[in-house]
Amino acid sequence: MYSILKAEALASNIYLMVVKAPRVAKHCLPGQFVIVKADEVGERIPLTICDYDREAGTITIVFQPVGASTEKFTKLKAGDAFEDFVGPLGRPSELCTDDLEEVKKKRILFVAGGVGTAPVYPQVKWLHEHGISADVIVGAKTKDLIILEKELQEVSGNLYITTDDGSYGRHGMVTKVIDDLVAEGKEYDLAVAIGPMIMMKFCCLTTKKYGIPTVVSMNPIMVDGTGMCGACRLMVGDEVKFACVDGPEFDGHLIDFDACMKRQQLYKTEEGRALLKLREGDTHHGGCGHCGGDK
């Protein structure tokens, strides 16, 4: 069992947990992820590592409940535990493994969308600790969904916040901020975009326009997360890759996002049913199975 030392809501419907997992904490690097399973009947869910403390042997995860399994996670409190917590999985961000002198020469822009801010944070923090200051754009639908602002402020070069509805920071999508920064004369050698697939897709279309190489962190369906099943496979250019072992970070300009988004829909109805069942129990909506549904 893996103890939960801290559990808190970062925003409405976004949760942060600090989990005791010494083997993961000892080896992980930014860009890697863990697979988490709540209990005996639980599903294995991949979550990107948001922060880690090697001394304390802890990993910080941030998640947004979107289905029955992540909804179940929100019920856990400090003092509870996950039955399974395995990692670190996937390859670390190349920024943390490439030659440091080469990385230092780069002008880097991070683009974070919604809960994707969580996996961006450790990368920016790692660069900051190695004397590299990267610019960061954080976008969210509305003010209440902005997370980790203070933490990012401490480690970013320039931090640009934007909301779709203009309730905080700039007004508009993250792609608009990219356009604006380029128009202001900012130059970047590398962009890293992490967030919902649709947001990464449009970021890539934007950066391609300006010829900025762009790395994205893909989040396909996974089961084991160790390369033994291929559930997370995707095309990168002409090659089949398994996101769990070859990624999750890839060259965003080589990804067919439309195909990846269709793959994510595979279990939509099953997921919907499971979530309803969890929220509404053995009721009509929860799928009682007796009444034959609406006529």
Partner: peptide, 29 residues
């Protein structure tokens, strides 16, 4: 081969055997 509905036998069997997907009391679909 990348289409929805194409599985490796490993994935199909892992979902069923290890994750008990055939049993609706378990969360894996």
């Amino acid at each position: 081969e990348q289409a929805n509905g194409v599985f490796s036998a490993n994935e199909y069997l892992t979902r069923n055997n290890l994750m008990h997907a055939f049993d609706e009391n378990y969360d894996t679909p």
